[in-house]
Write a protein that binds this DNA or RNA. Sequence first.
DNA 1: CATGAACCCTCTAGTGGCTTCAGAGTCAAG
DNA 2: CTTGACTCTGAAGCCACTAGAGGGTTCATG
Lengths: 136, 136
Amino acid sequence: MPIKIGELAKRTESTVETIRYYEKEGLLPEPSRSEGNYCLYGEKHIERLRFIRHCRTLDMALGEVRTLLRFRDAPDEDCGDVNILLDEHIRAVEIRVEELMQLKQHLMTLRQKCESTAPTSSCGILRALSDRSCHA
Amino acid sequence: MPIKIGELAKRTESTVETIRYYEKEGLLPEPSRSEGNYCLYGEKHIERLRFIRHCRTLDMALGEVRTLLRFRDAPDEDCGDVNILLDEHIRAVEIRVEELMQLKQHLMTLRQKCESTAPTSSCGILRALSDRSCHA
DNA sequence: CATGAACCCTCTAGTGGCTTCAGAGTCAAG
DNA sequence: CTTGACTCTGAAGCCACTAGAGGGTTCATG
């Protein structure tokens, strides 16, 4: 039943190196070992690692994941703080989207400054990027 | 006329440390020195650094900036590749925005799984994050 | 002329979340 | 008995800075 690290990686969409990194960080409990000193993992590890990877695909920092894991490990506590963490994370993503959309506008304005393939000396893009006043 | 590093930082919305980092990376040419071994910068440095900072506010990686600087330093070359670089960068930003908006959807779906402040053991959010099939 | 504050110098290490590498060990199949 | 796939440990590299230690310079003030 116990599986080795490569199998664990396959089952959790992670890599062997990432797993070892999480272990070093204390996010995963130490596995037991085989006679030949191979790490052996069980269902608990699979679940926990899937939880972590799932959080990471949702772009949460490992610190946030660590917090969520603490809640997961304390089933009697109030989960209101989980909601707060999530709300804050959603807000952070929103802000980043807004920033990036502004950025894209700037880039597109910049892009229009040079449609042709002229020598770089007359390239409006390079000129605009050197300019102090015109921020894109 | 020549200015010291603190003044350069002020005029280019950067910091002293960032400037020294760019120098080490070869993005800025070595400045001349005063008698007391202070770095002395001129108009060329100001322009070049502003160019770099401007690119960075547009979220370009230093590798991209390096490429653009090479074009800037070769005024007779064709600037078509500048356009290509910019188009690719715009596309990358677009993709990231799409990813983040998907992400936000996932997060909001997840958030709805727990409106109350129950014990974590019955928190729908934590449950969903552990679940393999339900990706948010 | 001495003192102190504000600036500057070099060099090193730390951040996050991995990834890559070197050098060795383990195990099953042919 | 060798090959090849897997595993182990530990250290270094990635990006774009940021922070800190431990000193030197410059200039105004007492």
